[in-house]
Design a protein around this nucleic acid. Structure first.
Length: 573
DNA sequence: GCCGTTTTCGGCCCGACTGTTTTCAGTCG
Protein backbone atom coordinates (compact mmCIF):
# COMPACT_ATOMS: atom_id res chain seq x y z
CA UNK A 1 0.00 0.00 0.00
CA UNK A 2 1.27 3.49 -0.85
CA UNK A 3 0.78 6.65 1.18
CA UNK A 4 -2.25 6.76 3.43
CA UNK A 5 -5.15 8.66 1.97
CA UNK A 6 -6.01 12.10 3.33
CA UNK A 7 -8.94 12.02 5.75
CA UNK A 8 -12.19 13.74 4.84
CA UNK A 9 -11.67 16.53 7.38
CA UNK A 10 -8.20 17.18 5.97
CA UNK A 11 -9.56 17.41 2.43
CA UNK A 12 -12.37 19.69 3.58
CA UNK A 13 -9.92 21.99 5.30
CA UNK A 14 -7.86 22.33 2.12
CA UNK A 15 -10.89 23.28 0.05
CA UNK A 16 -12.08 25.75 2.69
CA UNK A 17 -8.68 27.43 2.58
CA UNK A 18 -8.79 27.42 -1.20
CA UNK A 19 -12.20 29.11 -1.09
CA UNK A 20 -10.99 31.71 1.42
CA UNK A 21 -7.95 32.59 -0.65
CA UNK A 22 -10.00 32.73 -3.84
CA UNK A 23 -12.43 35.04 -2.10
CA UNK A 24 -9.58 37.35 -1.11
CA UNK A 25 -8.36 37.14 -4.68
CA UNK A 26 -11.73 38.44 -5.83
CA UNK A 27 -12.92 35.27 -7.55
CA UNK A 28 -16.52 34.75 -8.61
CA UNK A 29 -18.72 34.23 -5.55
CA UNK A 30 -20.45 31.17 -6.99
CA UNK A 31 -17.14 29.46 -7.51
CA UNK A 32 -16.30 29.98 -3.84
CA UNK A 33 -19.69 28.73 -2.81
CA UNK A 34 -19.09 25.63 -4.90
CA UNK A 35 -15.80 24.90 -3.11
CA UNK A 36 -17.40 25.49 0.29
CA UNK A 37 -20.37 23.26 -0.50
CA UNK A 38 -17.99 20.56 -1.66
CA UNK A 39 -15.91 20.95 1.52
CA UNK A 40 -18.95 20.46 3.70
CA UNK A 41 -20.10 17.49 1.66
CA UNK A 42 -16.66 15.91 2.03
CA UNK A 43 -16.55 16.61 5.77
CA UNK A 44 -19.93 14.94 6.29
CA UNK A 45 -19.27 11.97 4.09
CA UNK A 46 -19.17 8.67 5.94
CA UNK A 47 -16.82 7.09 3.40
CA UNK A 48 -13.33 8.14 2.31
CA UNK A 49 -13.82 10.74 -0.41
CA UNK A 50 -10.16 10.53 -1.40
CA UNK A 51 -10.76 6.83 -2.04
CA UNK A 52 -13.82 7.66 -4.12
CA UNK A 53 -11.96 10.30 -6.13
CA UNK A 54 -9.15 7.90 -7.01
CA UNK A 55 -11.78 5.53 -8.41
CA UNK A 56 -13.54 8.36 -10.24
CA UNK A 57 -16.62 8.00 -8.06
CA UNK A 58 -16.52 11.22 -6.04
CA UNK A 59 -18.67 12.91 -8.70
CA UNK A 60 -21.58 10.88 -7.34
CA UNK A 61 -21.68 13.21 -4.34
CA UNK A 62 -23.91 16.22 -4.91
CA UNK A 63 -21.81 19.36 -5.29
CA UNK A 64 -18.68 17.55 -6.50
CA UNK A 65 -17.99 17.66 -10.22
CA UNK A 66 -15.08 16.79 -12.44
CA UNK A 67 -12.86 19.70 -11.43
CA UNK A 68 -13.11 19.13 -7.69
CA UNK A 69 -12.81 15.39 -8.12
CA UNK A 70 -9.52 15.90 -9.95
CA UNK A 71 -8.34 18.23 -7.21
CA UNK A 72 -9.19 15.65 -4.53
CA UNK A 73 -7.20 13.06 -6.46
CA UNK A 74 -4.33 15.57 -6.76
CA UNK A 75 -4.37 16.02 -2.97
CA UNK A 76 -4.40 12.27 -2.44
CA UNK A 77 -1.51 11.71 -4.85
CA UNK A 78 0.75 14.72 -4.23
CA UNK A 79 -0.39 15.98 -0.82
CA UNK A 80 -0.99 19.50 -2.12
CA UNK A 81 -2.89 21.58 -4.66
CA UNK A 82 -1.23 23.57 -7.39
CA UNK A 83 -4.06 26.10 -7.23
CA UNK A 84 -3.40 26.62 -3.54
CA UNK A 85 0.35 27.05 -4.03
CA UNK A 86 -0.27 29.65 -6.71
CA UNK A 87 -2.62 31.66 -4.51
CA UNK A 88 -0.18 31.54 -1.62
CA UNK A 89 2.44 33.30 -3.72
CA UNK A 90 -0.02 36.10 -4.45
CA UNK A 91 -1.67 36.56 -1.06
CA UNK A 92 -0.48 36.45 2.56
CA UNK A 93 -2.16 33.49 4.28
CA UNK A 94 -2.68 35.56 7.43
CA UNK A 95 -5.22 37.61 5.54
CA UNK A 96 -7.65 34.73 5.97
CA UNK A 97 -7.73 35.40 9.72
CA UNK A 98 -8.24 39.12 9.08
CA UNK A 99 -11.19 38.28 6.87
CA UNK A 100 -12.67 36.20 9.69
CA UNK A 101 -12.81 39.09 12.18
CA UNK A 102 -16.52 39.73 12.79
CA UNK A 103 -17.73 42.64 10.69
CA UNK A 104 -14.85 42.36 8.25
CA UNK A 105 -14.98 40.31 5.10
CA UNK A 106 -12.86 39.56 2.08
CA UNK A 107 -13.33 42.94 0.45
CA UNK A 108 -12.36 44.90 3.54
CA UNK A 109 -9.49 42.55 4.37
CA UNK A 110 -8.09 42.96 0.89
CA UNK A 111 -8.24 46.74 1.11
CA UNK A 112 -6.54 46.69 4.51
CA UNK A 113 -3.75 44.69 2.91
CA UNK A 114 -3.48 46.73 -0.28
CA UNK A 115 -3.68 50.12 1.35
CA UNK A 116 -2.25 49.62 4.83
CA UNK A 117 -0.05 46.58 4.34
CA UNK A 118 -2.02 44.47 6.84
CA UNK A 119 -1.07 40.80 6.38
CA UNK A 120 -2.29 39.35 9.67
CA UNK A 121 -4.05 39.97 12.97
CA UNK A 122 -1.07 41.66 14.63
CA UNK A 123 -0.73 44.26 11.88
CA UNK A 124 -4.49 44.73 11.93
CA UNK A 125 -4.35 45.51 15.62
CA UNK A 126 -1.49 47.97 15.09
CA UNK A 127 -3.32 49.69 12.25
CA UNK A 128 -6.50 50.02 14.28
CA UNK A 129 -4.69 51.23 17.39
CA UNK A 130 -2.85 53.92 15.46
CA UNK A 131 -6.09 55.18 13.89
CA UNK A 132 -5.12 54.32 10.33
CA UNK A 133 -8.16 52.12 9.68
CA UNK A 134 -10.62 54.98 10.00
CA UNK A 135 -8.77 56.91 7.32
CA UNK A 136 -9.79 54.51 4.58
CA UNK A 137 -12.86 55.68 2.65
CA UNK A 138 -15.87 53.62 3.65
CA UNK A 139 -14.41 52.68 7.02
CA UNK A 140 -14.86 54.80 10.12
CA UNK A 141 -14.36 55.04 13.84
CA UNK A 142 -17.05 52.49 14.63
CA UNK A 143 -15.45 49.89 12.41
CA UNK A 144 -12.06 50.57 13.97
CA UNK A 145 -13.46 50.25 17.50
CA UNK A 146 -15.25 47.06 16.57
CA UNK A 147 -12.06 45.53 15.18
CA UNK A 148 -10.24 46.26 18.44
CA UNK A 149 -13.10 44.81 20.49
CA UNK A 150 -13.15 41.65 18.38
CA UNK A 151 -9.40 41.19 18.64
CA UNK A 152 -9.50 41.66 22.42
CA UNK A 153 -12.39 39.23 22.84
CA UNK A 154 -11.10 36.55 20.52
CA UNK A 155 -7.63 36.17 21.97
CA UNK A 156 -8.51 34.22 25.11
CA UNK A 157 -11.41 32.49 23.40
CA UNK A 158 -9.29 30.99 20.65
CA UNK A 159 -9.02 27.68 22.50
CA UNK A 160 -12.72 27.02 22.87
CA UNK A 161 -14.84 26.07 19.91
CA UNK A 162 -17.65 28.33 21.01
CA UNK A 163 -20.22 25.60 20.50
CA UNK A 164 -22.24 24.10 23.33
CA UNK A 165 -23.19 20.42 23.53
CA UNK A 166 -26.77 19.64 22.58
CA UNK A 167 -27.18 17.57 25.73
CA UNK A 168 -26.15 20.46 27.95
CA UNK A 169 -28.55 23.00 26.37
CA UNK A 170 -31.58 20.91 25.45
CA UNK A 171 -33.14 20.76 28.95
CA UNK A 172 -32.64 24.52 29.23
CA UNK A 173 -34.33 25.27 25.91
CA UNK A 174 -37.22 23.00 26.79
CA UNK A 175 -37.61 24.86 30.08
CA UNK A 176 -37.58 28.25 28.34
CA UNK A 177 -40.20 27.10 25.84
CA UNK A 178 -42.37 25.84 28.69
CA UNK A 179 -41.93 29.07 30.67
CA UNK A 180 -42.83 31.26 27.70
CA UNK A 181 -45.84 29.10 26.92
CA UNK A 182 -47.27 29.81 30.38
CA UNK A 183 -47.34 33.58 29.73
CA UNK A 184 -50.86 34.88 29.04
CA UNK A 185 -49.76 36.74 25.91
CA UNK A 186 -48.20 33.62 24.36
CA UNK A 187 -50.03 31.51 21.82
CA UNK A 188 -47.70 29.08 20.10
CA UNK A 189 -44.11 28.67 21.26
CA UNK A 190 -41.49 26.43 19.66
CA UNK A 191 -37.80 25.76 19.72
CA UNK A 192 -36.14 26.38 16.34
CA UNK A 193 -32.64 26.46 14.87
CA UNK A 194 -30.00 23.80 15.35
CA UNK A 195 -31.45 22.68 18.68
CA UNK A 196 -34.69 21.74 16.96
CA UNK A 197 -32.67 19.83 14.38
CA UNK A 198 -30.86 18.13 17.31
CA UNK A 199 -27.46 19.04 15.92
CA UNK A 200 -24.73 17.59 18.18
CA UNK A 201 -23.42 21.06 19.07
CA UNK A 202 -25.04 24.49 18.79
CA UNK A 203 -23.77 28.05 18.74
CA UNK A 204 -26.90 29.82 19.97
CA UNK A 205 -30.49 29.02 20.81
CA UNK A 206 -33.57 30.02 18.82
CA UNK A 207 -37.15 30.15 20.00
CA UNK A 208 -40.11 31.47 18.02
CA UNK A 209 -43.62 32.27 19.14
CA UNK A 210 -46.92 33.80 18.19
CA UNK A 211 -48.47 36.13 20.75
CA UNK A 212 -51.11 38.70 21.52
CA UNK A 213 -48.75 41.50 22.40
CA UNK A 214 -45.20 40.62 21.43
CA UNK A 215 -43.69 43.35 23.58
CA UNK A 216 -45.14 41.73 26.70
CA UNK A 217 -43.64 38.39 25.81
CA UNK A 218 -40.17 39.73 25.02
CA UNK A 219 -40.27 41.77 28.25
CA UNK A 220 -41.21 38.60 30.13
CA UNK A 221 -38.21 36.82 28.63
CA UNK A 222 -35.87 39.71 29.41
CA UNK A 223 -37.04 39.59 33.02
CA UNK A 224 -36.43 35.90 33.64
CA UNK A 225 -34.15 35.37 36.64
CA UNK A 226 -31.61 33.37 34.62
CA UNK A 227 -31.07 36.25 32.18
CA UNK A 228 -27.81 38.07 32.91
CA UNK A 229 -27.72 40.35 29.87
CA UNK A 230 -30.29 41.72 27.43
CA UNK A 231 -28.64 42.41 24.09
CA UNK A 232 -31.82 43.47 22.28
CA UNK A 233 -35.47 43.83 23.19
CA UNK A 234 -38.36 45.03 21.05
CA UNK A 235 -41.91 44.06 20.13
CA UNK A 236 -40.89 41.27 17.75
CA UNK A 237 -37.48 40.17 18.95
CA UNK A 238 -35.33 39.80 22.02
CA UNK A 239 -31.79 38.51 22.44
CA UNK A 240 -30.63 37.55 25.92
CA UNK A 241 -27.65 35.86 27.49
CA UNK A 242 -28.21 33.22 30.18
CA UNK A 243 -26.20 32.65 33.34
CA UNK A 244 -24.44 29.85 31.49
CA UNK A 245 -23.35 32.27 28.78
CA UNK A 246 -25.81 30.94 26.23
CA UNK A 247 -27.23 33.37 23.72
CA UNK A 248 -30.94 32.95 23.11
CA UNK A 249 -33.02 34.63 20.42
CA UNK A 250 -36.78 34.91 20.72
CA UNK A 251 -38.75 36.03 17.68
CA UNK A 252 -42.43 36.82 17.87
CA UNK A 253 -44.18 36.30 14.55
CA UNK A 254 -47.69 36.76 13.12
CA UNK A 255 -49.84 33.60 13.34
CA UNK A 256 -50.61 33.64 9.61
CA UNK A 257 -46.99 32.92 8.64
CA UNK A 258 -45.91 30.91 11.69
CA UNK A 259 -45.21 27.92 9.45
CA UNK A 260 -43.03 29.97 7.11
CA UNK A 261 -41.04 31.46 9.97
CA UNK A 262 -40.62 28.23 11.92
CA UNK A 263 -39.35 26.56 8.75
CA UNK A 264 -37.00 29.44 7.99
CA UNK A 265 -35.55 29.66 11.49
CA UNK A 266 -35.17 25.91 11.85
CA UNK A 267 -32.83 25.72 8.85
CA UNK A 268 -30.38 24.40 8.14
CA UNK A 269 -29.03 27.05 5.84
CA UNK A 270 -28.11 24.39 3.30
CA UNK A 271 -31.55 22.84 3.48
CA UNK A 272 -33.21 26.21 2.96
CA UNK A 273 -30.96 27.19 0.08
CA UNK A 274 -31.64 23.91 -1.70
CA UNK A 275 -35.36 24.20 -1.02
CA UNK A 276 -35.48 27.73 -2.37
CA UNK A 277 -33.41 26.91 -5.44
CA UNK A 278 -35.80 24.10 -6.28
CA UNK A 279 -38.76 26.44 -5.69
CA UNK A 280 -37.30 28.98 -8.12
CA UNK A 281 -37.25 26.27 -10.78
CA UNK A 282 -40.98 25.92 -10.20
CA UNK A 283 -41.58 29.66 -10.45
CA UNK A 284 -41.84 30.21 -6.69
CA UNK A 285 -39.87 32.48 -4.41
CA UNK A 286 -39.65 31.29 -0.80
CA UNK A 287 -38.80 33.55 2.12
CA UNK A 288 -39.60 33.61 5.84
CA UNK A 289 -42.71 35.67 5.05
CA UNK A 290 -44.35 33.40 2.53
CA UNK A 291 -44.22 31.85 -0.90
CA UNK A 292 -44.51 34.22 -3.83
CA UNK A 293 -45.68 33.00 -7.22
CA UNK A 294 -43.38 34.82 -9.63
CA UNK A 295 -45.92 34.98 -12.45
CA UNK A 296 -48.69 36.63 -10.43
CA UNK A 297 -46.81 38.25 -7.57
CA UNK A 298 -49.23 36.65 -5.14
CA UNK A 299 -47.82 35.70 -1.74
CA UNK A 300 -49.19 32.70 0.12
CA UNK A 301 -48.56 32.28 3.84
CA UNK A 302 -48.78 29.08 5.89
CA UNK A 303 -49.84 28.67 9.48
CA UNK A 304 -48.02 25.35 9.83
CA UNK A 305 -44.87 23.81 8.43
CA UNK A 306 -46.90 20.89 7.10
CA UNK A 307 -48.93 23.23 4.89
CA UNK A 308 -45.78 24.94 3.66
CA UNK A 309 -43.95 21.75 2.70
CA UNK A 310 -47.07 20.35 1.02
CA UNK A 311 -47.56 23.60 -0.93
CA UNK A 312 -44.01 23.20 -2.24
CA UNK A 313 -44.59 19.60 -3.26
CA UNK A 314 -42.96 17.80 -0.34
CA UNK A 315 -43.95 15.63 2.58
CA UNK A 316 -43.31 17.38 5.88
CA UNK A 317 -39.66 16.78 6.71
CA UNK A 318 -38.64 16.05 10.32
CA UNK A 319 -36.21 18.76 11.51
CA UNK A 320 -33.46 16.21 12.22
CA UNK A 321 -33.23 15.48 8.49
CA UNK A 322 -32.98 19.07 7.30
CA UNK A 323 -29.30 19.11 6.37
CA UNK A 324 -29.59 18.83 2.59
CA UNK A 325 -28.46 15.21 2.64
CA UNK A 326 -31.10 13.90 0.26
CA UNK A 327 -34.17 14.64 2.36
CA UNK A 328 -35.70 17.04 -0.19
CA UNK A 329 -35.56 14.49 -3.00
CA UNK A 330 -36.95 11.80 -0.70
CA UNK A 331 -39.74 14.07 0.55
CA UNK A 332 -40.70 15.00 -2.99
CA UNK A 333 -40.94 11.32 -3.86
CA UNK A 334 -42.89 10.55 -0.68
CA UNK A 335 -40.04 8.27 0.35
CA UNK A 336 -38.89 9.67 3.70
CA UNK A 337 -38.06 7.00 6.28
CA UNK A 338 -40.38 6.55 9.27
CA UNK A 339 -37.80 7.67 11.83
CA UNK A 340 -37.35 5.79 15.07
CA UNK A 341 -39.14 7.49 17.98
CA UNK A 342 -38.23 7.59 21.64
CA UNK A 343 -41.26 5.45 22.43
CA UNK A 344 -40.00 2.72 20.08
CA UNK A 345 -36.94 2.09 22.24
CA UNK A 346 -37.84 -0.53 24.82
CA UNK A 347 -34.63 -1.09 26.72
CA UNK A 348 -31.17 0.24 27.47
CA UNK A 349 -28.19 -2.01 26.78
CA UNK A 350 -25.34 -0.03 28.31
CA UNK A 351 -25.33 1.39 31.85
CA UNK A 352 -22.91 1.47 34.79
CA UNK A 353 -23.29 1.20 38.58
CA UNK A 354 -20.94 1.71 41.50
CA UNK A 355 -19.71 -1.83 40.94
CA UNK A 356 -17.34 -0.01 38.57
CA UNK A 357 -17.23 3.72 37.79
CA UNK A 358 -20.95 4.49 38.07
CA UNK A 359 -22.10 6.87 40.78
CA UNK A 360 -25.24 4.97 41.80
CA UNK A 361 -25.98 1.58 43.31
CA UNK A 362 -27.49 -1.18 41.25
CA UNK A 363 -30.76 -0.72 43.12
CA UNK A 364 -30.88 3.03 42.48
CA UNK A 365 -30.13 2.65 38.80
CA UNK A 366 -32.77 -0.02 38.35
CA UNK A 367 -35.37 2.06 40.21
CA UNK A 368 -34.63 4.98 37.87
CA UNK A 369 -34.88 2.76 34.80
CA UNK A 370 -38.26 1.42 35.99
CA UNK A 371 -39.47 4.97 36.56
CA UNK A 372 -38.57 5.70 32.95
CA UNK A 373 -40.57 2.70 31.79
CA UNK A 374 -37.61 0.69 30.51
CA UNK A 375 -38.56 -2.91 29.89
CA UNK A 376 -35.00 -4.20 30.09
CA UNK A 377 -31.66 -2.92 31.26
CA UNK A 378 -28.20 -4.38 30.72
CA UNK A 379 -25.77 -3.67 33.57
CA UNK A 380 -22.44 -3.23 31.77
CA UNK A 381 -19.81 -2.42 34.35
CA UNK A 382 -16.17 -2.43 33.27
CA UNK A 383 -14.66 -5.91 33.37
CA UNK A 384 -11.35 -4.61 34.68
CA UNK A 385 -13.10 -3.42 37.87
CA UNK A 386 -14.77 -6.79 38.40
CA UNK A 387 -11.86 -9.09 39.21
CA UNK A 388 -11.37 -11.29 42.29
CA UNK A 389 -14.82 -12.83 42.10
CA UNK A 390 -16.64 -9.48 42.02
CA UNK A 391 -18.13 -10.31 38.61
CA UNK A 392 -19.73 -13.42 40.06
CA UNK A 393 -21.00 -11.57 43.14
CA UNK A 394 -22.46 -8.82 40.95
CA UNK A 395 -24.14 -11.43 38.78
CA UNK A 396 -25.80 -12.88 41.87
CA UNK A 397 -26.94 -9.42 42.97
CA UNK A 398 -28.42 -8.69 39.54
CA UNK A 399 -30.18 -12.05 39.31
CA UNK A 400 -31.59 -11.68 42.79
CA UNK A 401 -32.92 -8.18 42.13
CA UNK A 402 -34.30 -9.30 38.78
CA UNK A 403 -36.22 -12.14 40.43
CA UNK A 404 -37.97 -9.65 42.69
CA UNK A 405 -39.20 -7.44 39.82
CA UNK A 406 -41.71 -8.25 37.13
CA UNK A 407 -41.91 -4.95 35.21
CA UNK A 408 -38.29 -4.92 34.03
CA UNK A 409 -35.80 -7.54 32.92
CA UNK A 410 -32.26 -7.11 34.19
CA UNK A 411 -29.42 -8.43 32.05
CA UNK A 412 -25.97 -9.39 33.21
CA UNK A 413 -23.90 -7.45 30.74
CA UNK A 414 -20.32 -6.28 30.73
CA UNK A 415 -18.19 -3.66 29.00
CA UNK A 416 -14.84 -5.14 28.07
CA UNK A 417 -11.75 -3.28 26.90
CA UNK A 418 -10.31 -4.11 23.54
CA UNK A 419 -6.61 -4.36 24.39
CA UNK A 420 -3.74 -3.19 22.19
CA UNK A 421 -3.36 -6.68 20.72
CA UNK A 422 -7.09 -6.98 19.99
CA UNK A 423 -7.76 -9.36 22.87
CA UNK A 424 -10.49 -8.67 25.45
CA UNK A 425 -9.97 -8.19 29.18
CA UNK A 426 -12.28 -11.01 30.19
CA UNK A 427 -11.81 -14.71 29.45
CA UNK A 428 -14.00 -16.59 26.98
CA UNK A 429 -15.70 -18.68 29.66
CA UNK A 430 -16.94 -15.65 31.56
CA UNK A 431 -17.82 -13.80 28.33
CA UNK A 432 -19.93 -16.72 27.16
CA UNK A 433 -21.90 -16.59 30.40
CA UNK A 434 -22.88 -12.93 30.02
CA UNK A 435 -26.29 -12.00 28.61
CA UNK A 436 -24.83 -9.07 26.70
CA UNK A 437 -21.27 -7.97 25.88
CA UNK A 438 -20.16 -4.49 24.78
CA UNK A 439 -16.53 -4.19 23.64
CA UNK A 440 -14.89 -0.77 23.53
CA UNK A 441 -11.53 0.86 22.96
CA UNK A 442 -10.40 3.05 25.85
CA UNK A 443 -6.70 3.39 25.10
CA UNK A 444 -4.44 4.30 22.20
CA UNK A 445 -7.13 6.33 20.51
CA UNK A 446 -4.48 8.35 18.72
CA UNK A 447 -2.77 5.29 17.29
CA UNK A 448 -2.58 4.95 13.52
CA UNK A 449 -5.83 3.94 11.82
CA UNK A 450 -4.69 0.50 10.63
CA UNK A 451 -3.74 -0.52 14.20
CA UNK A 452 -7.05 0.63 15.66
CA UNK A 453 -8.93 -1.05 12.86
CA UNK A 454 -7.10 -4.35 13.48
CA UNK A 455 -8.03 -4.17 17.18
CA UNK A 456 -11.71 -3.54 16.53
CA UNK A 457 -11.89 -6.17 13.78
CA UNK A 458 -10.37 -8.68 16.21
CA UNK A 459 -13.09 -7.91 18.76
CA UNK A 460 -15.76 -8.28 16.08
CA UNK A 461 -14.41 -11.77 15.34
CA UNK A 462 -15.05 -12.84 18.93
CA UNK A 463 -18.22 -14.93 19.05
CA UNK A 464 -19.05 -13.36 22.42
CA UNK A 465 -19.00 -9.68 21.45
CA UNK A 466 -22.50 -8.41 20.72
CA UNK A 467 -21.80 -4.72 20.23
CA UNK A 468 -18.91 -2.30 19.71
CA UNK A 469 -19.25 0.63 22.13
CA UNK A 470 -18.56 4.28 21.17
CA UNK A 471 -16.69 3.10 18.07
CA UNK A 472 -14.60 6.18 17.19
CA UNK A 473 -13.84 7.32 20.74
CA UNK A 474 -14.39 10.99 20.02
CA UNK A 475 -15.17 13.53 22.74
CA UNK A 476 -16.86 16.59 21.31
CA UNK A 477 -14.87 19.80 21.87
CA UNK A 478 -12.07 17.74 23.42
CA UNK A 479 -10.83 14.88 21.31
CA UNK A 480 -11.23 14.11 17.60
CA UNK A 481 -12.49 10.73 16.45
CA UNK A 482 -9.84 8.05 16.04
CA UNK A 483 -8.57 7.13 12.59
CA UNK A 484 -10.54 3.88 12.64
CA UNK A 485 -11.47 2.60 9.18
CA UNK A 486 -15.19 2.65 9.76
CA UNK A 487 -16.03 1.27 6.33
CA UNK A 488 -14.05 -1.88 7.10
CA UNK A 489 -15.63 -2.17 10.56
CA UNK A 490 -19.13 -1.75 9.16
CA UNK A 491 -18.52 -4.37 6.48
CA UNK A 492 -17.29 -6.94 9.02
CA UNK A 493 -20.09 -6.14 11.47
CA UNK A 494 -22.61 -6.78 8.71
CA UNK A 495 -20.99 -10.12 7.88
CA UNK A 496 -20.73 -11.33 11.47
CA UNK A 497 -23.96 -9.90 12.89
CA UNK A 498 -22.12 -7.64 15.34
CA UNK A 499 -23.95 -4.46 16.35
CA UNK A 500 -22.64 -0.91 16.54
CA UNK A 501 -23.59 1.56 19.23
CA UNK A 502 -24.82 5.11 19.15
CA UNK A 503 -23.60 6.19 22.56
CA UNK A 504 -25.86 8.92 23.93
CA UNK A 505 -23.36 10.62 26.26
CA UNK A 506 -23.61 14.33 25.36
CA UNK A 507 -19.94 14.64 24.48
CA UNK A 508 -19.77 11.33 22.61
CA UNK A 509 -22.78 10.81 20.34
CA UNK A 510 -20.68 8.11 18.78
CA UNK A 511 -21.43 6.83 16.12
CA UNK A 512 -22.20 10.17 14.59
CA UNK A 513 -25.24 10.64 12.34
CA UNK A 514 -23.68 9.99 8.95
CA UNK A 515 -21.78 6.94 10.19
CA UNK A 516 -24.91 5.47 11.74
CA UNK A 517 -26.70 5.95 8.45
CA UNK A 518 -23.90 4.24 6.55
CA UNK A 519 -23.86 1.31 8.99
CA UNK A 520 -27.61 0.83 9.02
CA UNK A 521 -27.77 0.96 5.23
CA UNK A 522 -25.14 -1.79 5.19
CA UNK A 523 -27.46 -3.90 7.34
CA UNK A 524 -25.69 -3.49 10.68
CA UNK A 525 -27.99 -3.43 13.72
CA UNK A 526 -27.66 -0.18 15.65
CA UNK A 527 -27.92 -0.14 19.47
CA UNK A 528 -29.01 3.12 21.12
CA UNK A 529 -27.40 3.47 24.55
CA UNK A 530 -27.35 5.89 27.45
CA UNK A 531 -24.00 4.67 28.83
CA UNK A 532 -25.47 6.04 32.07
CA UNK A 533 -23.19 6.40 35.10
CA UNK A 534 -25.99 7.91 37.20
CA UNK A 535 -29.78 7.84 37.46
CA UNK A 536 -30.13 11.03 35.42
CA UNK A 537 -27.69 9.62 32.88
CA UNK A 538 -30.35 7.19 31.71
CA UNK A 539 -31.87 10.22 29.99
CA UNK A 540 -28.97 10.26 27.52
CA UNK A 541 -30.91 7.61 25.64
CA UNK A 542 -33.00 10.51 24.30
CA UNK A 543 -29.87 12.00 22.73
CA UNK A 544 -28.99 8.67 21.15
CA UNK A 545 -32.48 8.55 19.66
CA UNK A 546 -32.04 12.09 18.29
CA UNK A 547 -28.72 11.12 16.73
CA UNK A 548 -30.33 8.00 15.23
CA UNK A 549 -33.06 10.14 13.69
CA UNK A 550 -30.40 12.41 12.20
CA UNK A 551 -28.93 9.22 10.75
CA UNK A 552 -32.26 8.42 9.01
CA UNK A 553 -32.76 5.29 11.15
CA UNK A 554 -36.09 3.51 11.34
CA UNK A 555 -37.20 1.42 14.32
CA UNK A 556 -36.47 -1.72 12.32
CA UNK A 557 -32.79 -0.75 12.14
CA UNK A 558 -32.55 -0.20 15.90
CA UNK A 559 -31.75 -3.35 17.85
CA UNK A 560 -33.27 -2.23 21.16
CA UNK A 561 -36.52 -1.13 19.55
CA UNK A 562 -37.39 -4.80 20.05
CA UNK A 563 -38.39 -6.80 23.13
CA UNK A 564 -35.40 -8.57 24.71
CA UNK A 565 -36.34 -12.06 23.43
CA UNK A 566 -36.24 -10.72 19.87
CA UNK A 567 -32.91 -9.01 20.48
CA UNK A 568 -31.55 -12.36 21.64
CA UNK A 569 -32.64 -13.95 18.39
CA UNK A 570 -30.80 -11.25 16.41
CA UNK A 571 -27.55 -11.76 18.30
CA UNK A 572 -24.85 -13.70 16.49
CA UNK A 573 -24.29 -16.31 19.19
C1' DG B 1 -17.49 25.28 -9.97
C1' DC B 2 -21.92 22.81 -10.36
C1' DC B 3 -26.01 21.62 -12.66
C1' DG B 4 -30.21 20.34 -16.05
C1' DT B 5 -38.66 17.60 -16.73
C1' DT B 6 -37.13 24.50 -20.85
C1' DT B 7 -31.06 24.71 -20.70
C1' DT B 8 -24.06 21.70 -21.99
C1' DC B 9 -24.95 27.91 -21.27
C1' DG B 10 -26.40 30.82 -18.07
C1' DG B 11 -28.30 30.68 -14.24
C1' DC B 12 -27.03 30.18 -9.05
C1' DC B 13 -32.09 31.91 -1.97
C1' DC B 14 -33.62 35.72 0.47
C1' DG B 15 -33.89 39.32 3.61
C1' DA B 16 -32.00 42.16 7.61
C1' DC B 17 -28.67 44.94 9.54
C1' DT B 18 -24.63 48.06 9.81
C1' DG B 19 -21.85 51.75 8.79
C1' DT B 20 -21.08 54.80 5.87
C1' DT B 21 -23.31 56.74 2.90
C1' DT B 22 -26.80 60.58 -0.19
C1' DT B 23 -28.40 55.31 -2.75
C1' DC B 24 -25.25 51.40 -1.35
C1' DA B 25 -21.73 47.71 -0.44
C1' DG B 26 -20.45 44.46 2.67
C1' DT B 27 -21.57 41.20 6.00
C1' DC B 28 -24.40 37.87 8.25
C1' DG B 29 -27.61 34.00 9.11
Amino acid sequence: MGRTLPRNDELAERFELLADLLELDGADAFRLAAYRRAAQRIRESAVSVAGLALEGKAKRLAGIGGTIERKIAELAETGDLEALAKLRTRLPEGLVEVMRVPGLGSKTARRLWAELGVTGLEELRAAAESGRVRELPGLGEKTEARILRSLAASAPRAEATGRALLGSVLPFVERVVAELATHPAAERVSEAGSVRRRAETVRDLDVIATARGGAELTAFLAGRPWVVEVLAQGPTKATVVSVDGLRLDLRVVPPACYGNLLQHFTGSKDHNVALREEAVRHGLSVSEYGVETAATGKVATHETEEELYVALGYEWIPPELRENRGELEAARAGALPALVRRADVLGDLHAHTDWSDGRVTLEQLVAAARARGQRYLAICDHAKRLGDGRLERQTEAIRELDASLDDIELLCGVEVDIRADGSLDLDDGRLAARDWVVASIHSGLRDPGPELTRRVLAAIESPHVDCIGHPTGRKLNRRPPSDLDLEAVVARCAETGTFLEINGQPDRLDLRDTHARLAAEAGVGIVLSSDAHSAAGLGYLDLAVAQARRGWLTAAQVVNARPWPEVKEMMKR
